[in-house]
Design a protein around this nucleic acid. Sequence first.
DNA 1: ATACTTAAGTCAAATATAGTCAAAGTCAGC
DNA 2: GCTGACTTTGACTATATTTGACTTAAGTAT
Lengths: 156, 156
Amino acid sequence: MRNISDVIEGYLRQVIELSERDHIEIKRSEVAEKFQCVPSQINYVINTRFTVDRGYLVESKRGGGGYIRIKRIRLHQKSDVIAEVIERLEHGATQVMAEDIVFRLLDEEIISKREAKLILSAVDRGTLLLPIPTRDEVRARILIAMLFTIKYQTNT
Amino acid sequence: MRNISDVIEGYLRQVIELSERDHIEIKRSEVAEKFQCVPSQINYVINTRFTVDRGYLVESKRGGGGYIRIKRIRLHQKSDVIAEVIERLEHGATQVMAEDIVFRLLDEEIISKREAKLILSAVDRGTLLLPIPTRDEVRARILIAMLFTIKYQTNT
DNA sequence: ATACTTAAGTCAAATATAGTCAAAGTCAGC
DNA sequence: GCTGACTTTGACTATATTTGACTTAAGTAT
C-alpha cells in the first residue's frame, strides 16, 4: 500500500499532463479534502516533489480566491537546460540534488536511461566515499564535467 | 529444519518467481512478522543472498509507505571483458589507466563514443581535483561503479 | 482604517519505516 | 573442547511521512 504523498504527487502530475496550459492551479483545501488529509500535506508534497531541480515552479496566493499554481518548466533548447542545471551546481551537490537533476535530464530526453544510470552510479555517495563537504564538491565537479560533455558534444 | 535465513530466502525467491513483474516490493516488518524474527534479519538475508553477484539489485525507501524492492538483473553480453577490467582497477587507477580502459571498451563496442567521453570527463584529474593518492582511489571507484552499471542491466 | 474572513505557509512533534553494527548464539570440522 | 564461519538478536541511527497548532497574507465588509 502506497503512502498518500505519492498518490497526491501522481494525481498532480496527471493533472499537469492533461492540462492544455503549461501550468495548473489548485485549491489546497480542495485537494486535501479529496485525499482526506490535512492541508499542510499538500505543502509537503509540493516541497518534496515539485522542486526546481525537478523542473517545476510553484507560486501561490493566500486569502480569498487563493490558489497554488504549479508550472512545468520545459525548456526546449537542451543547452539551456544544461546551463541552468550547471548553475545550480556551482556550490556543491548533494546526492538528492544530483538524482533530481539526472531524472529531469532523462525526462527531458537529453540523456538516455543508460546514461542516467551511468551518471548516478558515478556520483553515488557509496562510490565517492569521501567526507562531507569534499564529497558534495567533488560530486558537483563530476556532474558539471559530464554535463559539459553532453552540452558540447559533436555528433560523431 | 533449516535456519530461518534460508527459509526467508526461499520464500522471497518464490515470490519473485511467481511475480509478473521483474521486481517485487516487500515490507520489511511484515516479512519479519510472518517468519517471527527481528526486522534486521531481513537485511541479513538480503545482504547475504540477494547480492549483485547473484543477479539481484535491491532498492528501498524508509518512512511511511516504505518498502524494500528486489529486482532481477540480466548480465550484459560483454560482461567478461568488464569483469576483467574491473579487476585491474581494484588498486586504484591513474588517468592513463582510465583512458586505456575506456578506449578498449569503446573498441569492443561495449560503450558508445558519447559514453566514453562522459566517463573520461568524470574521471579527469581536472574534474576530481583531489590530492594523490586519494584521486586515483576515487577515480577507480567511479570507474568501477560505472562499469558495474553497464555490466548489470535490469530488465526494465 | 479596522475588523473579520478566507486561504495558504511554517514548523516541530508524532509516527512509520528501513539500515547499521556488534554482541551473542549455533554448528560443523578439527 | 576449540575455532571459525554463519546466523540471530536488539539497541541505536537515519530517513520519510503524517498531523496539527500556530502564523501570515489577501480580500471583504463596516
